[in-house]
Structure formats: structure tokens, C-alpha cells
Design a protein around this nucleic acid. Structure first.
Lengths: 142, 142
DNA sequence: TATTAGTCTATTAATTCAATAGACTTTGTA
DNA sequence: TACAAAGTCTATTGAATTAATAGACTAATA
């Protein structure tokens, strides 16, 4: 299961992606519309800003808006930002790799082989799942 | 990431699946060989027994052994037993379903659509990953 | 210059995960 | 038949992570 943080982040991003380009949206508006505790959301949006996905404007008339194109923001990146690795085992992650204590030879580990396959498929699907794709699916499916 | 409990369970199961049929193996032997805290392992094996995957024999000469065929024990079942749902969102699980508060229509939710796809692919792969398959992969890959 | 709105740091509450302790029951065998 | 081996069961504890909150600070606009 993804954390609430990630879930909130995705909801907020989709919400922003549906708004006109560069138009600052109040944190409070997002929080209310998406049922997210405002203070919690503030931290999330700040993370997304640090990562270059969002930008913000301070003061009156300020708020957050999408900096990257909806085509360039995918679920794999968002999940990694908040929850860390997508892989189910430490020995099949790229950035957070950790060897199994009891493992003598990874290349001949059947368990690793299975979970590597799962990871690769999952990452592939999540990379394709951009904000643009999510919005498109929401419109087309009925 | 799967929990250590699940990881330990898988390691123990693979270990047992490599042993002769019906031969009771000591908890202590598994614990030592797989680097698992013995008391922790006891609880895990008990769960696997309650679920009908393992059987045990008490007293001297006792221990645990595989009850189901290695072909009938898959990673999806084991993961669900210890970690719960495989899905990444509560609204795409079968047994642990929970509606999203802010969601008005699931069928038109692009987010749900993406994560449903991920879940289905993952479950499919994990169902194919039986103990027999894992052992086979461990032998063939070099 | 007052008000609005994002920024930052710290703290707390709640939950889950991992591990441990110890008493109890069953069973084989000397 | 008594002892020792080995699994069973319940409870508890400690650690880590997740979720949420509080409040002071900074920047920008009218």
C-alpha cells in the first residue's frame, strides 16, 4: 500500500493538472476539495516544489501550480519521492539496494528473480502513468 | 516493500520445499540456516500451519514440513497472509476494499484505473511464482 | 503597512513492525 | 513412567515509521 502522503500528493497533482497553466491555486482550496489536512498538504506540496514538479507564488494571489508538463510527471517518480523504492525486496532496488544476509549468489536466487520481474513490470506501468494519462483515462472511461 | 515477516516466511518455505517430503525439520535448523530470530520464526511457521501450507510434528524428532505441494504454494498467497493486500490503493483491493472519500465515481477515476492495472499485473506474476517455480529458477539461472 | 499566503522547524500522537519472554502441551524414548 | 525434546500460545516491549499539529517566520501584493 502506498502511504497517505503519496496518495494525497497524487490527488493534489491531478487537481492542479486540471487547472489552467501557471494559475496559482490556494493550498486551502486543494485541501478542502481533496479532503487533505491542510498542514499536512503544505509539507507535501513543498516536497513537490523542491523536486521541481510544482512552483509557487507567495503573498496575496499566490498559491501552487504545476511547473512540469503533465506528460512529464509520472507515478513512479511521485511514489519514489514520498515512499522510497517501488521494489518489494531490497535486493532488487536500484537506489536503495541491500544484499540479503543469507544469500550466497544473487544470480541464482529464484526469489530475487521473481521479485525483480515484478518490480520491472510495475515500474514500467507506473512510468507510463503520467498526469496527462490519468486525466485522459478519467475522461474516456464511463 | 514486503515485511521481514513475509521475507522470512518465503525463505523458510523455500528451505522446506527443498527437503524430502514429510520430513520434519527443526525450527532451530531453519532459523540458523536462514538467519531468522527463532522465536519470530516460530510465530511465522504457526501461521503457515494454520493456513494449511505447513504441518508439524510435536515432541522429539518433530519439526515442520510442507503439507501442500510446492506447485500449489504461490507468493501472492504468502504475501497476503502476512502483509495483507497486494494492491497499492485500498480502492483496488478485493478483500480489503475501501472507498476513497473524495471519489465521486470510481469507474471514471484515472488514478484507480492505473493502480488497478498495476495490481492485476502484480497478482498475476506472483500467482505464477510458486515454490516449485522459485526452486526451478534457482537451478537454471547461472 | 496591513494582510495574505507560502516556508520552516519542532513536536506529538498513532500505528505498525520486529523481536522477546515465559509458561504450557505434546510426544518419543530410556 | 519420567525426562527431555520440540512445538504452542499469550502477552509484552521496544523501535521505527506514518500521520498530523502547532506556531513562528518570510515574502509579496494592494
Amino acid at each position: 500500500m502506498i502511504s497517505k502522503k503519496t496518495k494525497y500528493a497524487i490527488n493534489a497533482l491531478v487537481y492542479l493538472a486540471k487547472k489552467p497553466l501557471q494559475q496559482p491555486i490556494l493550498i486551502s482550496e486543494i485541501a478542502e476539495h481533496e479532503h487533505i489536512p491542510q498542514k499536512f498538504l503544505e509539507a507535501i506540496l513543498l516536497n513537490l516544489k523542491k523536486d521541481g514538479i510544482l512552483a509557487s507564488k507567495k503573498g496575496k494571489g499566490g498559491g501552487y501550480f504545476l511547473l512540469k508538463s503533465p506528460n512529464d510527471v509520472n507515478m513512479a517518480d511521485v511514489m519514489r519521492l514520498f515512499d522510497g523504492p517501488i521494489a518489494l525486496l531490497p535486493c532488487v532496488t536500484y537506489k536503495y539496494y541491500q544484499k540479503c544476509e543469507e544469500c550466497t549468489d544473487e544470480d541464482s536466487c529464484g526469489i530475487r528473480s521473481v521479485f525483480l520481474e515484478v518490480r520491472n513490470h510495475t515500474v514500467e506501468l507506473l512510468k507510463k502513468a503520467t498526469l496527462a494519462e490519468i486525466i485522459k483515462r478519467g475522461e474516456s472511461v464511463h
